[in-house]
Write a protein that binds this DNA or RNA. Structure first.
Lengths: 214, 214
DNA sequence: TTTTGTGAACTAGTTCACAGCT
DNA sequence: AGCTGTGAACTAGTTCACAAAA
């Protein structure tokens, strides 16, 4: 089972799961790759290939049993194990992430915020996530078994914070700071770059108005 | 010039520009594709191909002139035209986005927040972005020339909000709500799905611990 | 000599099309 | 009959390797 599964496949599995949750709520029993494909604007074969990586999850002639596939995807994505998340940076964005309802839904638990700004330490977010000094990260990460750190600090301190997070033994990082960050081989870093996203849209608008003139 | 340029290339152009800004600040005059490649962990040929889409931007034997390339990339990405952005949804996330310093840096201007919650309308974000009723979007979008809408509303109202945004004549949307959204052909939608990002990391951790047992 | 710009080769990702199971 | 699972074909994206320019 040394087959490397692509990031693109993994992202799509999350989407499939979200729809399955919805279907399950509506009492739908089975769903075909064709129906899933339509819902996401994807090719049905792609969905079957994505799922086939993890065994014969479907039933020929019938499709996929919603509850079964839901359970399988949860297990594949590791959502059957109440994963704990720490947010580093108690600025506007960090506080918003700490209280973001979408994170809590699929079994993630936001256990703590961290900051190095003394006046913030000891306070908490609106929904009651406590803010600790970043110095305490290592201790708390070990005691509480934090699996993922989300980083929402200014660009200039981001690499330092990443180093601290790595030293604390955390092996998965969701980064919201701009700029390129280095992590060791065994740590998984995923970056959400808001500036890059916005500039992509700007490019689209700029090209559009250029083409109007042609 | 009907060549379609890939989203991946566009995202990388943003990264290149960010580094060029930094180099320019340090007074560096030229930079080679090799140096850029090292900074981002990419292949040098890829960077040359990305840039070659837009003409002969480099100088053989020398590399790229920092200031020239910076200006070119700004123009390519449409950042030479002070683009106006509206944030829809004045919850925690919307307010955080409205005050996000990274957006202001490259010439984007956050001009307004919108919400349908009466008690929020009339207030403003910490940095002074005013909150308007979503009903007023069409008017303000036209008067102020809003180019991009960022959507940070709960999943269940997201499609409605997108429809309102499209009706207001906005043709580029950055979406932070989970779920699949439909937009007409002429509108560009980019989604940042926080749940999908987090679940991607969870998958990585889950697979790791499975493999430990093998 | 250095480094770009680019055809050719390669790798990854998607779609087609159909055998095989229910 | 219907739908999965999958080899084969295709498309997109990246890297190699080198001619051409400064």
């Amino acid at each position: 089972m040394a087959v490397q599964i692509s990031e693109l496949t993994i992202s799509r599995l999350s989407l499939y799961l979200r729809l399955l949750n919805e279907l399950e709520g509506k009492g739908v029993k089975t769903v075909s790759s064709k129906e899933l494909a339509q819902a996401f604007g994807l090719n049905a074969a792609l969905i079957r290939k994505d799922l086939a990586h993890f065994g014969d999850l479907g039933v020929r002639g019938l499709g996929y049993v919603v509850k079964t596939l839901q359970r399988e995807l949860r297990s594949i994505l590791g959502l059957d194990r109440n994963l704990k998340v720490a947010i580093i940076g108690a600025g506007n964005l960090g506080l918003a992430l700490a209280d973001y309802p979408g994170f809590r839904k699929e079994g993630f638990e936001i256990v703590a915020l961290f900051d190095n700004f003394p006046s913030k330490v000891g306070k908490e977010s609106r929904r009651g996530v406590s803010i600790y000094d970043i110095q305490e990260l290592k201790n708390i990460a070990h005691c509480d078994g934090i699996g993922i750190a989300a980083i929402a600090v200014p660009e200039k301190s981001a690499q330092n914070v990443v180093n601290t997070v790595v030293e604390a033994g955390i092996r998965a990082i969701l980064n919201f700071s701009p700029g390129t960050l280095r992590v060791p081989e065994h740590v998984k870093l995923k970056s959400v770059d808001l500036t890059v996203s916005l500039e992509g849209l700007s490019f689209y608008l700029a090209r559009e108005s250029r083409n109007e003139g042609v």
